[in-house]
Design a protein around this nucleic acid. Structure first.
Lengths: 190, 190, 190, 190
DNA sequence: CATGAATGAGCGTTCATTCAT
DNA sequence: TATGAATGAACGCTCATTCAT
């Protein structure tokens, strides 16, 4: 398998996500990863300085990707609750359709690598939801609680919801969407 | 250091929890653990067949302990919401006062060891809350949703809440209790 | 080959010296060394924390050994020149009969490990000769030059002399001894 | 960076000497060297078959350079001791002013590469001093000892002297010159 | 019961070298 | 001539596990 430049980096990224999904961060072995990509272990070190750099770079790339995409879900002019719902649904769908990436990001937060990711990258990911929550609080629509608490609650509900949807192999219909969002909305609305 | 059987097993359990709290499951090294307990690495194999057996046994023991304790919190004759709140508060307090055990159980769920724990043990942990949720649904007080979904939501909110309380070093007062429980109740009530 | 404790450490020491003699410090490979001693590479790490620790420990041991032995060569009551000659001859003989150890110590000085050896160990080795040189200067017998210069000159002459004796397979007789010492004495006498 | 053949070879030579001075022969990494020269590692293989060839070629070049230069220091008609002193001083000055090259040549002698250098090149370096020593012996001025012994003594004293001068940052004045040379002369004179 | 000694299997990483362009 | 990409062969080191005592 002779792939070129960027596509090889892409392959490394994908296979790493696969491994983390199946075996967690501790299961990422450079030799295994290389074999899955179809390259020599030493070739990995052409692209990344070491394992840590590989994980951090891939994490950063992933966070940037999903952050950019979810920003596009915010349409002007919608009522607050619907905007929040749109973002929520986007993330829920993303989580269901990109469960490996979602799993990667969740496991990342509890891995020792998380603290090594540049603050600006982390902030980028949190900015959209934080802005939304601030707006909701200013309009008196949601509980006046620390953003960290609110977004942790939302995030954890979403994570578990995605896991359960996937585990039970449910297709999301309109009713399901409403139900799932009601957990969030009811939890945080004032 | 001369310890009798059971107290040595207890020491192993405690030190393992300490390590998982500080470094996660990947940080549990048989040699380190033995040193912390004050015994030889080979002695660990007198008590447990191998590392997996050690982790599984300790996890099982821990789950049994906390399950038994929370059962005692259910008093007869209280209104439903208050019973649920009592259980919630018990767990919240437990999480705050036994943060290491709590952390262990949370990390366990995402570790490769979780799937190796006997189903009956996992069920035992879930039984109390499942019974409570069934009751609530029968009385029409909470959303008619799969118990797994509901308990996952409750569990995840609690986990994050405990984390935040500990991170911010907040003492729980009556108002905080009410606020935190409102997240849960508002989320699941019908 | 099943050796016990101290004899195994001794075997590691000897084989390490052999390797340094034949291939220099850069040629010391943990796996090679282990094979030569007849143990597993990981067993080396039972005795030494890592390669650096192994080299430093062995160097320290060696320096201590030879320092102690040469101290015994100083007899009271001899004229200064003869005392110096006795020490010199002791070292020359030691160098010829323990050429591997000698080579080890010389190569050590130019290896990156030298700076990691505790100062007190290095001082111990230099103390005897420094004391002798100080005495010689006080009695007006040798050049009033920095001890470091003098001992470097003596040491370098000795090192080269030993090398040449070995290369040419010369047996030392009384005349040779006198000749070799004359290099040193003539160089430093005032 | 566009360099012509010879100047690129010169750059490789200089940077190699720099590396050996700073980190020793074991510290010469083809990739590092290439980066310092401003070329690609593979370009090194356009100029040299492999690392060994590179080291040997550079060593040979260096030996030739310094041999040629010191030959010019021998003026006809001077008394023997002064001729020897002139050569000695030339080398001492060379060692102090070209400490990197000097260090390279000294380290070379103890590196595994030394035995791979053609005998004729080594002889070329020794020829001048050997001729001088032969002359001295014929005139009955210096000890009738093997040239190798004598030149090793002279060389080792010089090496240490240069090291000490550099370490102590001494400027050479007339007295110092005399003192240092006295070590040599006193050692070898008959 | 307890352990000191030993190890095999594996991991992350380095580096001289090759090769198609 | 020059090089970017790739790699095989090592190397230092870790760690769960075994075994004789």
């Amino acid at each position: 398998m002779k792939l070129k430049d960027e596509s090889k980096k892409q392959a490394i990224l994908e296979k790493t996500i696969d491994i983390v999904f199946e075996k967690g961060f501790a299961g990422v072995k450079m030799a295994d990863l290389a074999r899955m990509v179809g390259i020599s272990p030493s070739t990995l070190y052409v692209y990344y300085r070491n394992k840590e750099d590989l994980i951090i770079s891939i994490s950063t790339e992933l966070i940037k990707n999903v952050s950019q995409r979810s920003n596009k879900e915010v349409k002007e002019g919608l009522p607050y609750k619907l905007t929040l719902k749109a973002v929520w649904l986007y993330w829920l769908n993303f989580g269901v359709n990109h469960s490996k990436e979602m799993s990667f990001l969740q496991q990342l937060k509890q891995s020792p690598y998380y603290k090594l990711i540049p603050r600006e990258i982390k902030d980028e990911k949190a900015k959209l939801i934080n802005d939304l929550l601030e707006l909701g609080k200013k309009e008196g629509l949601i509980k006046k609680v620390d953003n960290e608490v609110l977004s942790a609650v939302i995030g954890s509900i979403m994570g578990e919801t995605v896991k359960l949807i996937l585990a039970k192999n449910i297709k999301l219909n309109e009713n399901d969407n409403d139900l799932m969002f009601s957990f969030v909305w009811d939890a945080i609305k004032s």
